[in-house]
């Protein structure tokens, strides 16, 4: 399978990429790692007539400490997250989640910015950064804006990003020693989770997000509120699906997903160290 014909433009900076996309309107798409976009183009589910390649913008490939958060360039690849000593120390949940994305070949190419911008509710990094309370930085023709992860996802493969905006940085608060867990239930190796949970717990504070439990990743604030009120991990986990609208599809039905969400959340909370 070969994608439809398109024009290929290599951007030499984020600003250039944004102006190229703006110039070509709806017909243009950014190309980062290509590991969501190219499979869609091969299946003709996406047919952009212009691709603006940002995959080689080395200046947007970094993980660094920045006060109370870790700043991650949007073009940082999944494999970079796995190996980052900064993440291992300050946001180990994100490094762990990255090891669960696809397979090594996918992780050598795919980027955190592409994964979040793609807004697939089944993906690992959107939910994980949501659980961690991340902020995404988008750059457009008129400057940059900061978007809290909790306000970013709008529906299946849909976010608040404008077509001429580009994610340039992901800011993840440092975990400050929080316990954490990543639970992903798959039927086949290398696959997206049928249901998954990313969670951290530190004293009475926690963050729990579910993936593939609706058209967006779901922040289970009910679970965190129950934990803060002193509920046990088992009791809090009963609320895991309360804010979700899980789909029924070939992999699993709605009831099964609801059950899985509770089981995986309980495991996650116990592993993360909640009582």
């Amino acid at each position: 399978m070969i994608p439809c014909a398109f024009d290929y433009l290599l951007a030499s900076s984020a600003a250039e990429a944004i102006s190229l996309v703006a110039q070509h309107g709806d017909e243009a798409k950014l190309l980062a790692g290509g590991h969501s976009l190219l499979p869609l183009m091969k299946l003709r589910l996406a047919q952009p007539s212009v691709l603006v390649d940002v995959g080689r913008l080395a200046e947007l490939r970094y993980v660094r400490e920045s006060g109370d958060h870790i700043a991650i360039g949007a073009l940082t690849r999944h494999a970079d997250l796995e190996r980052s000593p900064v993440l291992a120390q300050h946001a180990p949940l994100l490094a762990l989640a990255a090891t669960h994305v696809g397979d090594p070949q996918v992780r050598h190419r795919g980027t955190i910015g592409g994964s979040i911008a793609h807004a697939d509710p089944a993906s690992d990094l959107p939910a994980t950064t949501l659980a961690l309370g991340a902020t995404y930085v988008a750059q457009g023709p008129h400057g940059t804006r900061e978007i809290p992860a909790s306000e970013f996802f709008r529906g299946y493969l849909t976010s608040v990003l404008e077509p001429d905006e580009m994610l340039v940085e992901i800011r993840v608060p440092t975990m400050q020693g929080a316990g954490f867990s990543f639970q992903k239930f798959t039927r086949r190796a290398q696959d997206w989770g049928i249901v998954g949970v990313a969670a951290w717990v530190r004293g009475t504070q926690s963050g729990v997000a579910l993936f593939n439990m609706g058209s967006t990743p779901v922040l289970a604030t009910d679970v965190s509120a129950a934990l803060a009120d002193g509920a046990s991990a088992a009791d809090a986990a009963q609320l895991a699906a309360a804010q979700a609208e899980p789909p029924s599809d070939l992999s699993a039905g709605r009831e099964y997903r609801t059950h899985l969400a509770k089981v995986l959340t309980q495991r996650a909370l116990i592993e993360a160290g909640a009582r």
Partner: peptide, 9 residues
């Protein structure tokens, strides 16, 4: 680094 060459232009 290993990559799947059917998914790279």
């Amino acid at each position: 680094e290993s990559v799947k060459s059917c998914t790279v232009l």
